[in-house]
Amino acid sequence: MSDRTIRVLIAKPGLDGHDRGAKVIARALRDAGMEVIYTGLRQTPEQIVAAAVQEDVDVLGMSILSGAHNTLFPKVTALLKEQGVDDVLVFGGGVIPDEDIPFLKGHGIEAIFTPGTSTEDVIAYIQNNLKR
């Protein structure tokens, strides 16, 4: 990878008003030298994908605490695929039960970070798994 700045979209899909986690991650990635675009709360999958395309991000991180991850995360990856976007690293975070993780990974969410993950782990994961 070159030394170009990594661009990350941090998004909050669905009807979930809690974004402390998303903001902590955004801040940590900022401090790791990345440009973090934050969408704000209550985004639809369509809004998230449009933002990811316009912003030409390398990474898309989504945070969900409402329990709707099995619906919303795959919707986002399906829309990305529909648009022909195949070089964005997609990860998820939030309160996500272990038994849901294989299903999500099968739908293109390449990593899931649950509560207790250190921000260093997220940073390292991004740096080591960029697709372009």
């Binding site: 955004a26 801040r27 790791a32 934050y38 704000g40 933002a51």
Partner: peptide, 14 residues
């Protein structure tokens, strides 16, 4: 210091 940034203007434009 780090070269990082939070780009938050989209929040108002969603």
């Amino acid at each position: 210091f780090t070269g990082g940034a939070i780009l938050g203007d989209r929040i108002r434009m969603s």
